[in-house]
Design a protein around this nucleic acid. Structure first.
Lengths: 185, 185
DNA sequence: TGTACATCAGTGAACGCGCGTTCACTGATGTAC
DNA sequence: TGTACATCAGTGAACGCGCGTTCACTGATGTAC
């Protein structure tokens, strides 16, 4: 704390953004509010992110990166594990997850975002393709089916929409994702 | 058109809201903008919906009602048809769908919303339970799995997140939803 | 058929608010010599 | 070890904007007698 210079404002703003988004969603985010939370003048954020979309762009890229990491790590397990890893990521990184799929809110054309998103996509598809010596079209469909059910479950969970929703998303996800057909139709 | 009295302002505002939400999402909705589109003074909407959340509440209730109708109609078909009906609803009623699962945006405790949501929930669960002489817990899980994959697919489709996404959500949904296991694990 | 009156729907001015962005600035830090 | 200077990070005042909401109002419509 130098008094004038914050020291790590960029990181502090990102952390504050995550907290704010977890509470009120990405649409309600305000740069002035983040500056307030970081104890800094309201014009300071501009210095690090240029504008609001710039900040969300960083969050989105960061989210896709983390997702790619977790999916890649889960590749050693079963196809089911891959889906569970997806849900776990979403629940553990609600703010990032909420931003990632709202490309209208950030600079979706940003090279870093594109790269991170492709990395995550590859981790998911490779994970799906791995698990059978199957036809590519078949693998594609199964990948999409797995993505859909994991994404849907995570979304419903985060919305609190599920009836009798407990507090163990991992176990709940596993029970539901099991119902994906593990082999061809 | 009486000049002073609009005649059907309530309906006009709802229609304008749907258009606006389809374009920019529910968070960006503004009552003043709706009034402008309806060619009416900016204070007029208050008269019909009390406040912004009030308008979204009507939209949410209406959405759950329509969904319930469509799911009920699909009960005569297979479990797969139920899921396809869900996706079809989401794509055909993007604005309603976007609001329904954002209870922070409307008066989620409103009796009409609650009733409509329960009606939709029942249609979905009954549809799932129908299709087997199975164990209730089994039926519950299959219902959730079906809901998850349909919801996830619809969400990804609406976000334009799917690779090589065509323009026939019905067929695409059918191909993916097929991968849900039709019988016990 | 006419008149009085209540009710309803929409007006328009005003309020206070928080926001994003721009701008010339200043304090702090690091580097070259 | 000291000094000059460039660079970087943060300041604070100012701008213009669109918003939701309140309010006393007025025009239009329907109903009772």
């Amino acid at each position: 704390m130098s008094g004038y210079h914050h020291g790590d404002l960029r990181r502090a703003l990102l952390t504050a953004a995550v907290t704010a988004i977890e509470k009120s969603g990405p649409a309600a985010l305000s740069l002035r509010d983040l500056a307030r939370r970081a104890g800094v003048s309201h014009a300071a954020p501009t210095h690090h992110f240029h504008d609001k979309a710039g900040l969300l762009t960083v969050l989105a890229a960061d989210g896709f990166d983390r997702l790619a990491d977790q999916l890649t790590a889960a590749r050693t397990g079963s196809f089911l594990d891959l889906g569970v890893a997806y849900v776990r990521f979403a629940v553990a990184n609600r703010a990032h997850f909420a931003v990632m799929f709202r490309p209208d809110l950030y600079h979706a054309g940003d090279p870093e975002v594109i790269a991170a998103r492709e990395r995550a996509g590859r981790a998911l598809y490779d994970g799906a393709a791995d698990r059978a010596g199957v036809d590519p079209e078949q693998a594609r469909e199964e990948g999409l089916a797995g993505w859909s059910i994991a994404h849907g479950f995570a979304t419903l969970w985060l919305n609190g929409a599920l009836p009798d929703q407990g507090d163990d998303p991992d176990a709940a996800a596993r029970a539901i994702l099991r119902h994906l057909r593990p082999d061809g139709p």
